[in-house]
Write a protein that binds this DNA or RNA. Sequence first.
DNA 1: TCATATATGTAAGTAACTTATATATTGCAA
DNA 2: TTGCAATATATAAGTTACTTACATATATGA
Lengths: 116, 116
Amino acid sequence: MKMISTDLIKGSLKTIVLKVLKENGRMYGYEITRKVEELTAGQIKLTYGALYPVLHKLEHEGVLVTESENYNNRLRIYYSLTEKGESVVTEKIREMKEFIDSLQNIVNPQPGLNHA
Amino acid sequence: MKMISTDLIKGSLKTIVLKVLKENGRMYGYEITRKVEELTAGQIKLTYGALYPVLHKLEHEGVLVTESENYNNRLRIYYSLTEKGESVVTEKIREMKEFIDSLQNIVNPQPGLNHA
DNA sequence: TCATATATGTAAGTAACTTATATATTGCAA
DNA sequence: TTGCAATATATAAGTTACTTACATATATGA
């Protein structure tokens, strides 16, 4: 099973990260990539070069907060949504659902259902 | 109803154009943007600065061919899929369907359905 | 007469990524 | 005991698919 082209995924990263955090509460970066892989049956694999900068940016914007911990001599930086983050993710998900609907109307058009 | 953020749409443009051309046969650029707007209830509006370069590129790659015509003193350049284009669009649609499935598994996770 | 719709096009700029690189520990297999 | 895969985070340089702005021209309706 071929992976999805990165061009398609590009743009969805932030929403994906936030939604996974909303579902699972506190998570660390590495864990997020694994969760996304699991949810998408390996179709979407986040790269760390994309993930960490996004997490830092979201923290800087006050959407996420961090807690550092040590597990088995390995640093883990847990991220969780702030109150602001909760409302951001709600809006992002709404938008993504509309996006999915739009794509579905294109790949699987229902004749007569849309007439502008 | 707010439009979908361009970041999300970015990456889907090529597939959208090709799929619409597959459904409707011969179309000109302006017509394509209108059709996409119609199909997505105004959610996705292609910009000409993105559309025309993509059409030219796809023509250059042998995915599309053009026929110029004059309608009401206005130039219309009709695009249609080549044989190569047909197989390209089939693959693109397959990929987009997987993408939609993946996004759906994220925004609407089904517990217990995915276990890696 | 003036805005809106129709129709195509290019050039400059942005930013969200990818790819490559860096570091360090654990655990398992050869 | 050596060496690779997995775990864990991170930055820097480069790419590219777009957006925004600009350019041109006709038809149509207010």
